[in-house]
């Protein structure tokens, strides 16, 4: 089957281990108010067969070395889990690993499970700590996210949890403590990353003619991010790589 792809980034060095070839798949079930990729919301994009995608990826194998590989991102890549599953077969033949960068908002169907279990790393968003905030800021509840995390835990999939810290919404120690409840007993989580809110996707809202709810919000000060990162690291249970 064909996948629908928004764009490629041949050098994604911070979305997984090593050097990564990022494939941004089209379509997302969420409408996060702070989204920096609103141009990936719609399910349309360039059609690629798994073989065509592999052909692109293989050109980057010289850079992957021991731990680099492909990162499926989006949009929400797991909306196209069946396509990814077909790609996984081909990647495996070429000995190329992959990571999944997901919101965890999709149902855990067989294809999603297959794709998650076989990933080298899963980068899972924990956007908010509770159902109400999830609904308020993303349009969907927290249930699938927590189910996804449980699934990763049960299957021992190396997982990075990521949270975007937005000034005025969740940029305090008190707010972040609530997130930790979901993480600190999970053996599969080897890192918890706080990502600073930034404004470099704002131009896309203008270009797409979309209303940008956070247009007056400033980027998060990196010093604040560093302080908060230190704080959550110190609170997390042992065994978590800071």
């Amino acid at each position: 089957m064909n996948g629908y792809i928004h764009s490629f980034e041949s050098m994604a060095a911070v979305d997984g281990e090593g050097l990564r070839y990022a494939v941004f798949l089209s379509g997302c079930p969420l409408r996060c108010i702070y989204c920096h990729n609103p141009d990936t919301w719609k399910g349309e994009g360039m059609a690629f067969s798994p073989e065509e995608l592999l052909k692109k990826v293989i050109a980057y194998k010289p850079y992957f070395k021991n731990n680099g590989g492909v990162t499926f991102s989006g949009g929400e890549p797991l909306l196209q889990a069946e396509f990814i599953a077909e790609c996984v077969e081909l990647l495996r033949e070429k000995n190329i690993n992959y990571a999944i960068d997901t919101s965890g908002a999709t149902e855990l169907n067989d294809a999603v499970k297959y794709v998650l279990i076989n990933a080298q790393t899963v980068l899972l968003d924990l956007k908010f700590p509770d159902n109400d905030s999830y609904i308020k800021y993303t349009g969907k509840g927290i249930e699938n996210v927590l189910k996804t995390l449980d699934f990763l835990e049960k299957n021992n999939v190396p997982t990075r949890i990521r949270t975007v810290v937005i000034p005025g919404i969740n940029d305090s120690e008190e707010k972040l403590l609530k997130y930790l409840v979901h993480i600190n007993n999970k053996e599969c989580v080897y890192r918890y990353e706080l990502l600073p809110f930034h404004t470099m996707g704002f131009f896309k809202y203008e270009k797409l003619g979309l209303d940008n709810p956070l247009k007056d919000t400033m980027p998060l000060d990196m010093n604040v991010r560093d302080r908060l990162q230190k704080f959550v690291n110190s609170k997390l249970a042992k065994g978590i790589d800071i």
């Binding site: 050098m11 994604a12 990729n37 990521r162 930034h198 404004t199 470099m200 996707g201 131009f203």
Partner: peptide
Amino acid sequence: TIRVSGYAVNFNKLTRDKQLE
């Protein structure tokens, strides 16, 4: 390339204001 955690832009494509930012 300007990369801000999971997001990349070509610096030259940003407007001057963005670059200044």
